[in-house]
Computed example of a mutant assay.
Amino acid sequence: MKLELSVERNEAGKIIEVYFDQTHEPTTYEALKVLPSDAFVLTRGTAFQQKVWLELRNIPVGTTISYQEMAERVGSPKAQQAVGQALAKNPLPVILPCHRVTRKDGSIGGFMGQDRRQDIKQKILDFEQGQIGLDL
């Protein structure tokens, strides 16, 4: 799988945005998924959104959780819609792997706030599962 990705960096060289295109500094999925936490910085979002985004790094590669479980993890068990809205605004997909959050019934859900991007979400999940030998 080859995803066309690019990143935007701040003055300090930290990644502040990831794009699914080649309009900025080109990079690869493989390079982004192994970055340490100090390689990026959140420059926007509410406290709730940032809490959701940072929790994403605690979902193991190749697995998924539901929007409901994410809401519970961030201490707002009735906020699954707010979780979905936060994920739709994730500035750092892949680094903060929002693709690992799906609907409670196991269906894929949207990606980056758009149902038409579900193919990207599924490709990333398939790639991760193949990398670790999972068949979920």
Results as ranks from 00 to 15, higher is better:
Asp38Asn: 10
Gln129Gly: 02
Glu8Phe: 14
Asn90Glu: 10
Met112Lys: 10
Pro26Arg: 11
Gln81Trp: 15
Val101Thr: 12
Gln81Gly: 08
Pro36Trp: 01
Lys2Glu: 14
Arg73Phe: 08
Ala31Leu: 14
Met70Ser: 07
Glu128Asp: 05
Thr43Phe: 03
Gly109Trp: 01
Tyr67His: 05
Thr27Asp: 09
Glu8Arg: 05
Leu87Lys: 01
Lys121Val: 03
Tyr29Pro: 01
Val18Ser: 02
Thr23Ala: 15
Glu8Val: 09
Pro93Gly: 01
Ile65Leu: 04
His24Ser: 08
Ile16Gly: 00
Ile95Met: 13
Tyr19Met: 08
Val52Lys: 00
Val52Ala: 00
Gly75Pro: 08
Ser76Arg: 09
Leu92Gln: 02
His99Leu: 02
Val52Asp: 00
Leu125Phe: 04
Val61Met: 14
Gly130Lys: 14
Gln122Asp: 12
Val61Lys: 14
Thr28Val: 10
Ile95Thr: 12
Thr102Cys: 02
Arg73His: 11
Gln131Ala: 12
Leu136Phe: 15
Asp135Leu: 11
Cys98Phe: 01
Lys121Leu: 08
Lys89Ser: 13
Met1Asn: 14
Arg57Leu: 12
Ala12Met: 07
Gln129Asn: 15
Thr102Ser: 02
Ile16Thr: 13
Glu25Arg: 03
Asn10Phe: 00
Arg100Val: 00
Tyr19Cys: 15
Gly113Ser: 11
Gln114Leu: 04
Asp119Arg: 10
Glu69Ala: 14
Tyr29Trp: 11
Leu56Phe: 01
Gly130Ser: 15
Phe20Ala: 01
Glu69Arg: 15
Glu72Gln: 09
Ile65Gly: 07
Asn10Cys: 08
His24Ala: 13
Leu35Gly: 06
Gly13Ala: 09
Arg117Gln: 08
Ser37Tyr: 12
Arg103Ala: 13
Gly113Gln: 01
Leu35Lys: 10
Leu136Val: 10
Leu32Asp: 00
Phe40Val: 00
Gly13Thr: 05
Arg44Ala: 11
Ala31Glu: 13
Phe40Met: 02
Ser6Ile: 03
Glu4Gln: 08
Tyr67Phe: 12
Ile124Asn: 06
Tyr19Phe: 11
Met112Thr: 03
Lys51Phe: 11
Leu54Met: 10
Ile124Leu: 11
Ile120Val: 12
Pro36Lys: 08
Glu8Asn: 02
Ser107Gln: 12
Gln122Cys: 05
Val101Gly: 04
Gln129Ile: 05
Ile65Glu: 06
Ala71Gly: 00
Asp21Arg: 06
Val34Cys: 06
Glu11Val: 07
Ala79Trp: 09
Lys78Gly: 14
Phe20Ser: 03
Met112Gln: 06
Ile108Val: 14
Gly130Asp: 10
Val52Gly: 04
Ile132Thr: 14
Gln85Ala: 06
Ser37Cys: 07
Ala82Met: 02
Lys121Gln: 09
Lys51Trp: 02
Ala31Lys: 10
Tyr67Arg: 14
Asn10Val: 03
Pro93Asn: 02
Glu30Ser: 11
Thr43Lys: 08
Leu3Phe: 05
Asp105Thr: 02
Tyr67Ala: 07
Gly133Asp: 10
